[in-house]
């Protein structure tokens, strides 16, 4: 299984009475392209934080790539996330004061187990940037000087650098027009196929579901927000 949630609940520690997530059972199979439909206010960010191990659920069982995330210690969670999960945000995918190369390198730094792995990093980064058709000269410039399109491609490169088994794309197309959106999703699908990576694509735009194998509607999965 790719993702398996069972009896998962989440409430902020500061406000324990208000349950934000309440999921009875949710399962996502491997080798499929998943579309998660989540309008704003449906607890989407919290769910993604739980799935990626940034936060732990208040109760329940969270299994991602057959690893019990609710049982892992914090530092193991961070390592697991760095090594196995690629993440693409709607915006702010790169740290603005680092150049493209350093941004990708940072992701590698968190995932690497040994110094040797870090040393081998440079070639992998170059190959990936080439695959994404990013001009190598631009990689030494601060990312804030690059165009939005370039920034997005570098963001994708960063998400793929550690050969993740799960890529979470959180509203990555919201700020794109129709054509750019289509080519972006096509690119993402192609990369996932090439790198043998499962895709979880999150959007509030239902019209995108045709690109994916399975559609999940968060307002049906999450029983917490029914007030």
């Amino acid at each position: 299984m790719l993702i398996q949630l069972h009896e998962v609940t989440y409430a902020y520690p500061s406000n324990k009475n208000k349950t934000i997530i309440q999921i009875k059972d949710w399962q996502l199979a491997q080798q499929q392209k998943h579309f998660l439909y989540g309008p704003s206010g449906s607890g989407k960010s919290t769910l993604l934080n739980i799935v990626s191990g940034v936060i732990k659920p208040t109760s329940g069982r969270v299994e991602v790539l057959n690893e019990r995330l609710d049982k892992l210690k914090q530092h193991k969670l961070d390592k697991f996330r760095a090594q196995n999960i690629g993440y693409i945000f709607q915006k702010f995918n790169l740290i603005p004061y680092l150049n493209a190369f350093d941004n990708i390198h940072l992701a590698q730094y968190f995932a690497a187990n040994t110094k040797k792995q870090q040393a081998n990093a440079d070639k992998t980064i170059m190959d990936l940037l080439e695959e994404l058709q990013v001009n190598i000269d631009d990689c030494q410039r601060p990312v804030s000087q690059l165009s939005v399109g370039q920034q997005q491609r570098i963001g994708i490169a960063r998400a793929f650098i550690n050969q993740p088994k799960l890529l979470i794309a959180d509203e990555p197309t919201s700020s794109l027009d129709q054509d750019a959106r289509d080519s972006f999703i096509t690119l993402l699908n192609k990369l996932c196929a090439n790198h043998n990576c499962n895709l979880l694509f999150v959007s509030h735009d239902m019209s995108l579901q045709s690109y994916f194998d399975r559609t999940h509607a968060l307002n049906q999965i999450n029983l917490a927000n029914k007030d």
Binding site: H75, D78, Q83, Y87, F92, I95, P96, A107, F110, R158
Partner: peptide, 14 residues
């Protein structure tokens, strides 16, 4: 957002 990004990439709270 920068901190959120770092965390998502694998940075520990420490």
């Amino acid at each position: 957002e920068e901190i959120r990004l770092m965390r998502m990439v694998g940075a520990s709270p420490f």
